[in-house]
């Protein structure tokens, strides 16, 4: 039940990141067009792209990526290990991931609160308020930590599907 809700949520957030992607494409394209034709750039394009669209594209899909096991890893030695050792490795990996992502979520959470309190802005041709973007960091890292926690619990219960990870089409 909880897993179903989580899967739905993380997928929805992933597509929300996709919406950020499309908005960035349109905003930058329009900015180039207006600059070239009317000498009228859209003020704040750089700041909005960097601090809003990119934060959405990079961070909102993080829980989805973590749950789908799409983060980049090296499974050379892992593949040579016997089944039990593989299970232990996976468990350790999930536990460390939960620990690191929680720590990052906690620290960036402190920053988000601080940023909200002072009403943080960034400089540029226009001042852009950035505390809402700051808040996406702890939220996304915490959700990704939760994704790993779920995977660890599934593994512990022997429910881990062990699907071959769909590697990110990166590089």
């Amino acid at each position: 039940m909880l897993e179903r809700v989580f899967q739905k949520t993380s997928r929805m957030l992933m597509y929300l990141g996709g919406a950020g992607l499309m908005l960035m494409m349109l905003n930058v394209t329009l900015d180039v067009f207006l600059k070239a034709v009317f000498n009228f750039p859209i003020q704040g394009t750089v700041e909005i792209s960097s601090y809003y669209y990119m934060v959405a594209v990079v961070l909102l899909p993080l829980a989805f990526v973590e749950y789908e096991d799409s983060n980049i890893n090296v499974d050379l030695i892992y593949n040579l290990l016997p089944a039990l050792a593989q299970t232990i490795c996976r468990f350790v990996a999930y536990a460390l991931t939960v620990a690191v992502l929680s720590a990052v979520a906690w620290r960036t959470g402190i920053d988000a609160v601080h940023s909200f309190q002072i009403g943080e802005v960034v400089m540029g041709s226009r001042e852009v308020i950035v505390w809402p973007a700051r808040c996406i960091l702890p939220f996304s890292f915490a959700l990704a930590a939760f994704a790993s926690l779920l995977k660890a619990v599934q593994l512990f219960r022997g429910e881990d599907s062990r699907q071959t990870p769909s590697r990110a089409d990166a590089s």
């Binding site: 000498n39 750039p41 003020q43 704040g44 750089v46 700041e47 400089m123 540029g124 041709s125 226009r126």
Partner: peptide, 26 residues
């Protein structure tokens, strides 16, 4: 007038607009 000026932000941006130039932030 109408020139695109790379400005360091703040008062500089306001000055560019004051003299009818286009401030650019890169």
């Amino acid at each position: 007038k109408g020139k695109r000026l790379r400005m360091p932000g703040g008062a500089w941006t306001r000055f560019a607009e004051y003299i009818g130039a286009v401030p650019v932030s890169i």
